[in-house]
Amino acid sequence: MKSTVFEVTTGHSEVVYDLTPQCTQFAREAGGDGLLHVFVPHATAGIAVLELGAGSDHDLLAALRELLPADDRWRHAHGSRGHGRSHVMPALIPPYATIPVIGGALTLGTWQSIALVDLNVDNPDRQVRLSFLTDD
């Protein structure tokens, strides 16, 4: 297994951050056929495979705001108002995704991208672990 960790700064606002370029480069460098596993070791972030740049990223954030409002209903209440929702979000958008790789290329669909979803406005710095699994 080949593995690497890199840092992402998401800032202090809700974000859908495109990881596709880093994933593409890592898969190309790993080469061959296998599985790319993308993981964020955080209790308040997730990984999504979706279309980006055509409004879907904004729609996802709007849907999450509706499902998980940033208000005072959350028992997990430290940090900014509504912080507890960030700890619930990974049950909806898990902190990982696995993408097949053929000949060093991600086998994403035409409009698919790999994104970090982060609602936690209190933590602007994230780690992402990429692991390339083969049967070798």
Score class of each variant (00 low, 15 high):
R85Q: 05
Y17H: 15
A45F: 00
A105D: 14
G34R: 02
L92Y: 08
A54W: 06
P69R: 15
G84V: 03
A45D: 01
D18E: 09
E51S: 10
V88Y: 07
L92H: 09
H42C: 05
D33K: 13
D71P: 06
A54M: 12
L61F: 06
G103V: 09
D72A: 13
V88P: 05
A77P: 00
A30K: 01
S56W: 13
A43F: 04
A91P: 01
H58Q: 14
G79M: 00
L50H: 10
I93D: 05
H78K: 06
R73D: 08
I47F: 14
F39C: 10
H42K: 06
L64T: 02
H78T: 07
Q112C: 05
L116G: 10
Y96N: 13
A63K: 04
P95G: 14
A45S: 05
V38P: 09
H83G: 03
L36F: 09
I93R: 06
H83I: 03
P94T: 12
D118H: 12
G103D: 09
L92W: 08
A62V: 02
D59E: 14
M89I: 04
H87C: 08
Q112Y: 08
G79L: 01
A30M: 03
G79S: 01
Q22F: 06
I47T: 13
A105M: 14
H78W: 04
I93Y: 06
T110W: 10
E29D: 15
V117K: 00
H78A: 08
H87E: 09
H42D: 04
G32F: 12
I99D: 13
L60D: 11
R81K: 14
T107D: 11
H42G: 04
D33H: 15
G31F: 00
P69F: 15
W74P: 00
T110C: 09
G104N: 00
L35A: 11
R81V: 13
T44R: 08
Y17A: 13
D57G: 14
G82P: 11
L106M: 05
V40T: 15
L108R: 06
G31Q: 12
W111K: 07
